[in-house]
Design a protein around this nucleic acid. Structure first.
Length: 466
DNA sequence: TTTTGAGTTGTTCGA
DNA sequence: GTCGAACAACTCAAA
């Protein structure tokens, strides 16, 4: 065919882009298009800063496309209508896009496919979600067998290089990338494919060595912090997994190999939850496990507000929520601790936490976020047993042993002695006054007593399970 | 079809 | 301080 549209959604990259690669094989002129879809942008699950991250990423992609001789066409509106118009204007005979797994995306794409020549190409995960099945054809719902099967599959090829040159697209009306909202986190999480690739290289050359041992430490920066880039495809899952795969096989240093192993495992979790959402789209609405759909959650607006604002009185929980609110990212261990606190200590519906995370995380991904929340709440696939309730004081002592993470995000506690940093309410009054942290005045008293809250949660889960 | 072994990330209690 | 058991039963995957 002569002209085709490359419909960009969450694959903001030129390297290892299989949808783009197929389009380039099929058509002489490929027109890169992004559609600003009000359904997505105005969703209650969207985040202003994630949207800003996306727009900044589009600007970066636009500049990369121009260097290759092409351009980026941005249009606004219902995707089906926009694509109808664009196909007519550009005389495009085909549309190529990376397949997605979320219920909204699949419904949208199905509608487009009924009327227009849309071809979906895998890429959001290494192995397409509809292919990751048990021998009997049904989907997995337990991680370990899923992983075994994943490992038994051949690695799906090396990542593709970016195309050398692109043919200039025809002249078309262009809405351009919006200027608002402004992106606020460029210092900690700068945007673009080149940045994503260099961060992957940095992770592989130094941080991955510590990954197996220290990835749970909230006070250390030994995680990859690549999730926002994977979220928008500035880095492909295959590029990430390929790097881990190569390190596993050829790296001499054993701790680096172990790090690669553990990190690849995390990437397989990402594949697992994408597959779960694909096969069980109802998990966005209700518990994966039917037996846990009847837990009596509290309607506790004040409690939810204290949790979300980082005013729970538990230092680790507050540090984590403030990290999220101030940077759009949260350490993985901290996600588990805060989620456990909301669902178990406060007995607030996991869906409220899921939505809050989606409203604030730059990497907010429907599949991974839902999978994580349901896992913590005990309602999900292969979920934590209901009696597995995180103790925020112990978690703090284990994974932020010196209180560095807490002090960084909760400055009220910066002068609290190390032995009280995770339980400041136990400080004798004279010390509270001396270090300028009077509980109830400078820093909140714990909003619940964890030991009692734990008993309450155990009872509620016992009663709620049918 | 039936059976068997296993299942990300924790905590508390009592010996 | 350290260790193992209990916390519950269930469902899944695979033989």
């Amino acid at each position: 065919m002569n002209r085709a549209i490359w419909w960009i959604r969450r694959d903001l990259r030129l390297s290892d882009n299989q949808a783009l690669a197929v389009a380039l094989v099929e058509a002489e002129i490929v027109i890169p298009v992004f559609i600003l879809d009000p359904n997505s942008l105005d969703s209650q699950y969207n985040s202003q800063q994630r949207m800003a991250f996306l727009f900044e990423g589009l600007r970066s992609l636009e500049s990369d496309l121009r260097k290759k001789g092409s351009n980026l066409i941005v249009r606004k509106g219902n995707p089906l209508e926009v694509l109808h118009i664009l196909c007519a204007e550009a005389e495009a005979e085909g549309i190529f896009a990376e397949a997605d797994v979320s219920p909204y995306a699949r419904q949208r794409d199905t509608r487009v496919m009924r009327e227009l020549p849309l071809e979906l190409i895998p890429g959001i995960t290494l192995h397409p979600a509809d292919k990751l099945l048990k021998p009997d054809g049904s989907p997995y719902s337990v991680f370990t067998p899923f992983r075994r099967m994943w490992y038994s599959l051949p690695f799906p090829g090396k990542p593709l290089p970016a195309p050398e040159r692109l043919a200039p697209p025809p002249s078309l009306a262009n809405h351009g990338v919006p200027d608002f909202p402004r992106y606020s986190y460029a210092d900690s999480l700068p945007v673009g494919e080149a940045i994503a690739q260099s961060r992957l290289a940095r992770f592989l050359s130094s941080l991955i060595k510590h990954y197996a041992e220290d990835r749970n430490r909230m006070d250390l920066d030994h995680t990859s912090q690549l999730s926002p880039y994977l979220r928008f495809g500035m880095l492909s899952a295959r590029q990430a997994a390929w790097a881990a795969h190569v390190a596993q096989a050829f790296e001499r240093d054993i701790t680096t190999r172990q790090g690669a192993d553990v990190w690849l495992n995390e990437l397989i979790w990402r594949e697992f939850y994408a597959t779960i959402l694909y096969h069980f789209p109802y998990v966005r609405l209700t518990a994966f496990r039917p037996k846990l759909r009847y837990i009596q959650w509290f309607e506790d607006t004040a409690g939810f507000d204290a949790w979300s604002a980082g005013r729970s009185g538990y230092p680790v929980v507050d540090a984590a929520m403030r990290q999220l609110n101030e940077t759009g990212w949260m350490h993985n261990r901290a996600r588990m601790i805060t989620a456990s606190f909301l669902t178990k200590d406060l007995l607030i519906d996991w869906r409220q936490g899921e939505r809050y995370f989606m409203q604030h995380l730059l990497d907010g991904d429907p599949a991974a976020n839902n999978g994580g929340w349901q896992w913590i709440a005990g309602t999900g696939t292969d979920a934590a047993p209901y009696f597995r309730i995180f103790n925020p004081v112990l978690q703090g002592k284990k994974f932020d042993p010196h209180g560095i993470y807490v002090r960084h995000w909760v400055p009220e506690l910066s002068d609290v002695p190390a032995r009280f940093i995770h339980n400041p309410w136990e400080m004798p009054t004279h010390i509270q006054e001396k270090v300028g942290c009077v509980i109830g005045k400078n820093y909140p008293a714990p909003m619940v007593d964890h030991a009692k809250a734990r008993q309450r949660a155990l009872a509620a889960y016992r009663e709620g399970a049918i």
